[in-house]
Structure formats: structure tokens, C-alpha cells
Write a protein that binds this DNA or RNA. Structure first.
Length: 569
RNA sequence: CGGGGUGUAGCGCAGCCUGGUAGCGCACCUGCUUUGGGAGCAGGGAGUCGGGGGUUCGAAUCCCUCCACCCCGACCA
């Protein structure tokens, strides 16, 4: 491609509303253009990168034997009503109505459509297992789209769905998909990690996310330094601490006026924060519940929702907490709490001995409380978020917390959709059998942003080779004033094209600095420079995007030199 | 959803408080000069000042209203 014929829209200035580096660089490089909140145009430069990701994903999907299909972006409400998600999914689902007043949605995912497809086509267990996938545009009406294509409302996703007669068969495909995902992200040159994950709205049991590690990531991941344990902090666990050997002491009430934080409570009573059990009132599907965690622990709302079997959970407003318990917030505790309130205790809070907690009357806390002795122990569950430095639940290692960008997610769905939508085949005995399902997603457009988060410097993007929109930049110095440069560059460009090295030739009548800056900004991995002084010496200049020095290479053999560096594909 | 903020040329911004008919930088066009790390000089094109309503002789500026976009929060009890 010649720059003189390519719409290269680079800017020096960083757009004001771009927060993270990938968003800034994608805008500055002219890869994307915002149309509305969370909606983007992909310009030729950006689209080349997106297509490169798609190509690798497609190859690896095909390698697993999955079959590509294409489903409609717009889906009828009936299918979603059948699965029950029309009412469950909430405002994330963009609902639309056609001219006949029929309800549709713009698909945020395609479990319903694929299940419908399969139940109409598949008759026999002999046709299983089967995996379909598509690469397609999704729409999720995020409350707060941000970070450019990282968290857009409309985005490109690869989604795959597998169908099985047995759990063993599902497990086999699930494992194959995990391998395929690792291959994809390895080929893309990304530093990633598979982690255990919550299944969220999609449903099902087993699930893993693939995260690209980056400080700007929106998810926190706990990873062990001693084994391969890694989990989203939404569900990560850590090794329980050794139980304390303290003897139970006599419980007493203490006057604690105007205490509103655990830190104040600890200081006033001369306790450590971990000797305090705090009481958190939540609204679970609209019903109040009291949850107990240790003073320096954080309530994990994902775990709490699971423990309470609630679809929707949030912290109670102060008035709601007051209404539920009759006690102002800050003084709620397990002893003397009104009957009938749901309570769940975190394991660590349940193991606490001689702890302090609210006395259920204003300005008083208990000290030296003990479960069972002073009040019955409610049901227990894991409710806390793990912290860096805690022990790994699986080995002697230590957990650290890193941030990640979720670029892939694989699930074992089980029969959730086949059951609600009646997707069956005949089994060996000739009777109807529900198909067991898996689903597997990759955020294709998000991968592009994630790759930049992980690969950039002050001058711009540094594409991993397989993502690069062009493999090699050919820069001609003073092309409009030097016949020799023009001629040699043209020759070289043709050779690079013929060799399939995907060149971009900066043939503009621009100053050298402009060309260098542009090619660095858009992240072309290799650069060669043709100049009068090089021609005189019979050399070209080469510089890799990560190099800090030029190197002169003989004009003859330059092609082999590049071929070697760029490699196949 | 709650709180805050911003909308002025393609992009980044000033002007608004204190009303008088719009400006700077980048980008763009023309000419001359320059030519190995985002050139210089001169000239030029480009704006319903987010929309609507109001106050006023006069509104980018003051008031009302709507819209769009951005940030923070919705886990420290």
C-alpha cells in the first residue's frame, strides 16, 4: 500500500475524552472514529488489524473442527421469552420493535438463536458432538461504555456453541476450546492467563476467563506464584488462616458513641480490625439480609449473591438498613438482631473468637462475642474478597493480585437452554435426550485494544507481528527531489509486494520526521529507509519498531534480511 | 440510576464572570524558501457558538428547557 493512496488520519494531539492509552493511540493512529457513545467506525487501518485477529481466531476454531455459521444480529423476542431471559436480562438488552409492533432485540449473545437452530436441524445422537461458531457484531447497552472499543456497546465477538449427549463429551470439547484459546492468544503474541470465573448472566457451572494482563484492566485476578491457580477475584478463594487459640472471654457491652467506621471502632476499643465482625445489610432481590465479614475484609457481592441465591444484590441504603433492623447503621450486630432476617456469616467471621460487633442499639458495641455461646451461628459461606499475599487454596504458594482485560470466556452451560427451549435428539435407545451445551466467546474488537495496552511506547503502538496492519514500512527520504530514491524505492516496494511482506510505502512528499513519526505511531514492526546517501553506499537502513538504533544493511540481500525477520505469515 | 463537568472551525482550546456581533494553536488550501526526527514566512478557506424558548435596542455571554458527550460513584458498612 502506498501512503499517498491510503487514508492515513494520524494526529499529534490526543483527543480529550480518551482515558486509556489504547483508546488514545487508536484515535491518534486513525484506526477508529467515534460515532456515538460506545459506537465506532473502523477505518481502513483499524479494520486491517481487526481482520488479522479474526483470521487467527477463525483458523484456530476451524482447527478444532468447529463449523462457521452466521446468525442474525436482530433476534425475535419469542426466543428470549422461551429461555426466560427476556425478563431476566434487564436494560443491557436493547429491545426494538418492528413496524408490526413485534418485539425484537439486538443480540448481546446468541444462545437462544443457536439452540433454536440446532433443535430444528438435529435429530440423532449420531450427529453429536457438534460445534458452531460465528464472528459477528453484538450489542450490549452498557450503562457506561468507556475506553473506546475496550468497553463499547457494539462490538465484534466470536461466539461458539457446542452440543453433546454427555458431560464427558462436553468436557472434551471444552478442553479442546481451552487449548484453542491458548493457541489464539499465543499466536497473537499476548501475555495472557486463563482464570476461573463466575458464570454471570449466561448461566451454567464450569467457566474460565482468558485475561490479557494489563494495569488498565477492569478485572482483578488472584494468581498463585506456586501453581497454576488463578481466579477472578469475583470468586477467588484463599487458604484459611490458622485458628486462634484464644480462650473465650466474658462478653460485655461498650459505649461507642459516634462510631461509624471499623477503624474508629478498633481504635476506641483497643482492638485489631480483624477482631471486629462487621455487619453489612444488603438488598437481595429486594429483600434485606445481614451478612457478616471480618473488619478488614471486603464483602464480595458476587459471592454474596450466590450465597443468598439472589439474582440482583446491592448494599442497602441507610434507611433500608434501619427499616430492616431497627438499628442505625454502624451499630448492627448478630446478637439481639430482630427475628426473621436472613443472615449469612463469612467463614473467617465464623471462626472469629472474642470479637466485637454492633449491639443493635445506638452508640453501643459488644466486645468478646463468641458464636454459639452468645448467639446461634447462622449459615456460613465464603463472602469475602481475597487479598494479595494470602495463601493459595491449592498449594503452599502465595496469591498476588493483578489486573486483566477479559478477552475470552468459556462456559459449560449444561442443559439450561436445551431444557427451556426443548432441544433434544434421539439417543441410542430411541428416546428423547436433552443436549448438553457449552459456549465459548472471544471479544475480537476488545483484543485489538488489549494488544495495544500491552504493546506501546511513547511513540505509539508496537504491534505484535500477527496483528500489524502492515508488516514493513518503506520510507523514502526526499523522494520528490531524488530520481535515484524514487526509482530504488519503487523497485523495492514491488519486490516487497511480490514477496508477500505486506509493505506500506511512505511515498509522500513529506519531511522525514513526519514519516518516521507516523509509521511509529501506527506501529509497523519493521522499517527500512531508502535515501541518497544509502544508495551511494549501496545500503538501506533497517530498524525494528522496538530497536533504538538503525542498522545499515546491504541493498543486495535486503529482501532475505527482511524475510528472515518477518517470518512466514 | 446518583453526583460532577463539558458542548465555540476537522482536532485541542480561549472568549462567558462584567452582553456590543468570534479568536488562538494544530490540521487544510496557495506561493516562496527549507529538506534525515512532526519546518519557516506570506496569503487563504472554513464556525446554525449543541437545539429550542425567553430577557434585551443588542445574547457565545444572562434566564428557562431539552439534547449530546465525558468523568466519578453505585465494594471501606
Amino acid at each position: 500500500m502506498r501512503v499517498s493512496r491510503f487514508p492515513l488520519f494520524t494526529t499529534k494531539e490526543t483527543p480529550a475524552d480518551a482515558e486509556i492509552v489504547s483508546h488514545q493511540l487508536m484515535l491518534r493512529a486513525g484506526m477508529i472514529q467515534k460515532v456515538a457513545a460506545g459506537l465506532y467506525n473502523w477505518l481502513p487501518l483499524g479494520l486491517r488489524v481487526l481482520r488479522n485477529v479474526e483470521a487467527i481466531v477463525r483458523e484456530e476454531m476451524n482447527r478444532t473442527g468447529a463449523m462457521e455459521v452466521l446468525m442474525p444480529a436482530v433476534q425475535p423476542a419469542e426466543l428470549w421469552q422461551e429461555s426466560g431471559r427476556w425478563d431476566q436480562y434487564g436494560p443491557l438488552l436493547l429491545r426494538i420493535r418492528d413496524r408490526h409492533d413485534r418485539d425484537f432485540c439486538f443480540g448481546p449473545t446468541h444462545e437462544e438463536v443457536i439452540t433454536d437452530l440446532v433443535r430444528r436441524e438435529l435429530r440423532s445422537y449420531k450427529q453429536l458432538p457438534l460445534t458452531y461458531y460465528q464472528i459477528q457484531t453484538k450489542f450490549r447497552d452498557e450503562t457506561r461504555p468507556r475506553f473506546g472499543v475496550m468497553r463499547a456497546r457494539e462490538f465484534v465477538m466470536k461466539d461458539a456453541y457446542s452440543f453433546h449427549l454427555s458431560q464427558a463429551s462436553l468436557q472434551e470439547t471444552y478442553d479442546a476450546m481451552r487449548t484453542a484459546y491458548s493457541r489464539v492468544f499465543e499466536r497473537l503474541g499476548l501475555d495472557f492467563r486463563p482464570v476461573r470465573a463466575d458464570t454471570g448472566d449466561i448461566g451454567g457451572s464450569v467457566s474460565e476467563e482468558f485475561h490479557v494482563l494489563a494495569d488498565s484492566g477492569e478485572d482483578a485476578i488472584a494468581a498463585c506464584d506456586g501453581c497454576d491457580y488463578a481466579a477472578n477475584t469475583e470468586l477467588a478463594e484463599s487458604r484459611p488462616p490458622k485458628p486462634t487459640q484464644q480462650q473465650p472471654a466474658e462478653a460485655r457491652e461498650a459505649l461507642t458513641p459516634d462510631i461509624h467506621t471499623v477503624a474508629e471502632q478498633a481504635e476506641l476499643l483497643g482492638l485489631n480490625v480483624d477482631q471486629i465482625v462487621k455487619s453489612v445489610v444488603v438488598m437481595a432481590d429486594g429483600e434485606p439480609a445481614v451478612l457478616y465479614v471480618v473488619g478488614d475484609d471486603e464483602l464480595n457481592t458476587v459471592k454474596a449473591a450466590r450465597a443468598l441465591e439472589a439474582g440482583d444484590i446491592r448494599l442497602a441504603e441507610p434507611e433500608e438498613a434501619l427499616n430492616a433492623t431497627g438499628v442505625p447503621r454502624g451499630f448492627i450486630g448478630p446478637r439481639g438482631l430482630p427475628e426473621g432476617l436472613r443472615q449469612v456469616v463469612d467463614h473467617r467471621a465464623a471462626a472469629a473468637v472474642n470479637f466485637s460487633s454492633g449491639a443493635n442499639r445506638k452508640d453501643y458495641h459488644w466486645v468478646n462475642l463468641n458464636w454459639d455461646r452468645d448467639m446461634p451461628l447462622p449459615p456460613t459461606a465464603d463472602l469475602r474478597t481475597v487479598k494479595a499475599g494470602e495463601g493459595c487454596p491449592n498449594c503452599d504458594g502465595t496469591l498476588s493480585i493483578t489486573r486483566g482485560i477479559e478477552v475470552g470466556h468459556i462456559f459449560q452451560l449444561g442443559t439450561k437452554y436445551s431444557e427451556s427451549m426443548g432441544a433434544t435428539v434421539l439417543d441410542e435407545s430411541g428416546s428423547d435426550a436433552l443436549m448438553t451445551m457449552g459456549c465459548y466467546g472471544i471479544g475480537v474488537s476488545r483484543v485489538v485494544a488489549a494488544a495495544i495496552e500491552q504493546n506501546h511506547d511513547d511513540n505509539g503502538i508496537i504491534w505484535p507481528a500477527p496483528l500489524a496492519p502492515f508488516k514493513v514500512a518503506l520510507i523514502s527520504i526526499n523522494i520528490h527531489r531524488s530520481e535515484a530514491v524514487a526509482e530504488k524505492s519503487g523497485e523495492l516496494y514491488q519486490q516487497l509486494l511480490d514477496a508477500g511482506l505486506d509493505p506500506i510505502w511512505d511515498d509522500r512528499e513529506a519531511r522525514p520526521g513526519v514519516k518516521f513519526a507516523d509509521m511509529e505511531l501506527i506501529g509497523v514492526p519493521h522499517r527500512i529507509v531508502v535515501s541518497d546517501r544509502g544508495i551511494e553506499a549501496g545500503t538501506l537502513e533497517y530498524r525494528g519498531r522496538r530497536d533504538s538504533e538503525n542498522q545499515n544493511i546491504p541493498m543486495e540481500g535486503a529482501l532475505d534480511f527482511l524475510r528472515e525477520r518477518i517470518g512466514p505469515g
